[in-house]
């Protein structure tokens, strides 16, 4: 498989007062198209920072991040917005649905960044909601849905514009075991049936078992890789 992501000598540090805090120092990694990678590690190991950099939400201090031939570390803020809209679906721990919009409107949001017309947008929203098993909840607002249902809506929102990459930040961190398994099953299905490349940050070893491989981060470096 071809590499979708290539990180070359990526360093990331923050200046806090007179101190410089280094998160990563010359980190290298590759993620291939169609991969499902779980990233685990203790708090402060840099999991979320890595996810942010993969999603173009945060930039490296130095080094190269190549996504399918595009150096995203060199893109401007506006170019990154466009790139994220075209290529990345985000799934957050706390779902991050817009509370004033119903499920369908939430799922439609990424499509508003495309040139797809209203009728086609609706068809895509319906299909995405059906895929996560919530076709009958399209008109429900987030506060009328359970945590698991809200996360399904978030997954539908992440896949509705058919991005290559799904970035998941503790997607089951706020859910009970049974619901978490349902959500992870959906992610696994998106990876296996639809070829989505998934990078998932998690604390949960059970969740990591759904991934094809698990990378363990500690103090800004990969210390172990476990294949499924």
């Amino acid at each position: 498989m071809a590499a979708l992501f290539t990180l070359n000598d990526v360093s990331k540090s923050f200046v806090r007062g007179s101190d410089t805090i280094t998160i990563f120092d010359k980190l290298n990694m590759q993620i291939e198209a169609g991969d499902f990678v779980a990233i685990m590690g203790p708090s402060g190991s840099g999991k979320t920072t890595l996810l942010n950099m993969l999603g173009g939400v945060d930039g490296p201090t130095s080094g190269e991040i190549d996504f399918d031939g595009t150096r995203i570390d060199q893109l401007s803020e506006n170019q990154l917005s466009r790139w994220r809209a075209d290529n990345v679906g985000f799934i957050f721990q706390f779902y991050n649905l817009m509370p004033m919009l119903n499920a369908a409107r939430n799922v439609e949001l990424p499509l508003l960044l495309t040139s797809i017309k209203g009728k086609d947008r609706k068809a895509r929203v319906d299909a995405a909601l059906a895929l996560v098993g919530l076709a009958d909840r399209a008109k429900h607002s987030p506060n009328e849905l359970s945590g698991g249902q809200q996360q399904r809506v978030a997954i539908a929102r992440a896949i509705v514009s058919d991005p290559k990459l799904l970035l998941c930040d503790e997607p089951t961190g706020d859910l009970d075991r049974a619901t978490a398994d349902e959500i992870l099953g959906i992610l696994q299905s998106l990876n296996e049936k639809f070829g989505k490349t998934i990078v998932m940050v998690t604390h949960d070893p059970q969740a990591a078992k759904y991934a094809k491989r698990t990378l363990h981060l500690d103090k800004g470096a990969f210390v172990e890789e476990v294949a499924a």
Binding site: G55, E77, N78, F92, N96, M98, L109, L113, R157
Partner: peptide
Amino acid sequence: TRDIATLRTLGFGG
């Protein structure tokens, strides 16, 4: 804050 940051993360412009 979170809503705005989420929208911008999804690709909505500043």
